[in-house]
Nucleic acid binder design. Structure first.
Length: 143
DNA sequence: GCTTTTTAGCCCG
DNA sequence: CGGGCTAAAAAGC
């Protein structure tokens, strides 16, 4: 397994790769490896606001429910936000269950959980809400 | 399987 | 702006 860091105005973001598949994305972590260049370019382009979606293979764990939520989140269009509640209604579940699943998301950014906000606040984010704000800002969303 | 714990929410006063 | 409430998933047994 290898990983590569990318610099942002919020700190470093670290992407883990295992034989061509992205397995994990972490915040505030610096490392010195080089991952598959095709993937690296996509990440870099996204962070510069030049790319709106990803096209690389990933490897996932997680429960059936978590995968359902993550998949649904991926369908939220670039630059848009939805609330935990809206998603919960789509899956006939509760807002808090959505929060739990997003917290367990191993691939933030790829599964854009930063586009999911609470009804009256921004909600939470792994690695700090500063990241969430920054990612939304990249997408041209003022929160 | 059942019970307890935890939750990145919500709503109402 | 608290507090209490709640459902539902995950962890524990």
């Amino acid at each position: 397994m290898i990983c590569q860091s990318f610099e942002t105005e919020c700190g470093y973001i670290c992407v883990y790769e295992e034989n061509g598949h992205v397995t994990q994305i972490k915040f505030n972590e610096k490392c010195f490896g080089k991952i598959d260049q095709n993937i690296a370019i996509q990440i870099e382009d996204y962070l510069q606001g030049r790319r709106q979606s990803f096209n690389f293979p990933v490897k996932l764990g997680g429960t059936a429910f978590q995968k359902k939520v993550w998949t649904l989140v991926r369908e939220i269009p670039y630059g848009h936000t939805e609330t935990y509640k809206q998603l919960s209604e789509k899956l006939k579940t509760s807002p808090r269950a959505i929060g739990q699943a997003l917290k367990a998301n191993p691939l933030p950014v790829y599964f854009p959980c930063h586009r999911v906000v609470a009804k009256k606040s921004i909600g939470g984010f792994t690695g700090g809400i500063e990241w969430k704000k920054m990612l939304l800002k990249i997408e041209g969303c003022n929160f």
